[in-house]
Amino acid sequence: MLQYVLAEHPFFVATGALYAAAMAFYAAAWRSTKALVGRVGTALMCVALLANLGLIVQRWIEADRAPFKSLFESLVFFAFTTGVVYLVWERLYRTRVFGAMAMLLSLGIIGYALSKWDAEIVKLPPALQSAWFVPHVVVYFVGYAAVGLAAGLAAIQLLAPRVPLVQRIVSMKAGTILSGEALDLDKMTYELVRFGFVLLTVGLLVGSVWAKSAWGDFWVWDPKENWSLVTWLVYGAYLHLRRVRNWRGDRAAWLCLLGFSVVMFTYLGMKFLPTADASAHVYSGE
């Protein structure tokens, strides 16, 4: 199998290898006193993103349509959006502490995509040939990436007081925290969720408008629609509870993790539902 993947899909393997290399440099930057190590991590991540973008463009050309139809294609795009959102976040917060975590996410998604390889490039059915298709998917996956990174931060926030190694990592290190300021994980998580929530909102509403133009109804209580709504409601609760006393810190972090679990179930779990047969939203290739 490995021989087949290496021979037939070398670009895909190279993308995974670049994410792994970026992760290694980001992890090395935790211990290194040289800023160069972290910079190399960022540079490798940029190259990995370019390679990932290349995979998307190549598929777009091969399929002659936006490559978001199958689970495999969406995973490749998800790995890309995760990297892009992280890169912007790294620039904004001027820290590379969480680069390894973000690269692990992207690498994990690429690895999972390998197990969901498409047997064929699926043609786009008429309902998906819509101007809403690309904005709906792009907005959602950038949102997923944001709340995914937020969940990673929430996990670190919960682990840091309990695991000395994690505590050391999120403490000040040369080459990783460029601003020189202590990290406020709770605030960073909140700001990522806030950013992601807007996109989840727009994605949900765009999907609804699209459903209206394709099927004549903007909401049919389809399982995927319901779970997208659940995602929105859980993050809505997270944002509202932010204003309630004693709902910051660990509680908020747990809620953030719950929110991302719901996102993952919405994305990957529809086939496990007893009502899956009634859904028009189960990915091809699942």
Binding site: L233, V234, A237
Partner: peptide, 25 residues
């Protein structure tokens, strides 16, 4: 009009929405 009340409602609505995907409607 409080955030606590709204959060509770959002969670209850989420549970109901999940129920609708576990039982055929």
């Amino acid at each position: 009009s409080g955030f606590r009340f709204t959060s509770t409602l959002l969670v209850v609505l989420a549970v109901m929405a999940i129920g609708g995907t576990l039982i055929l409607q």
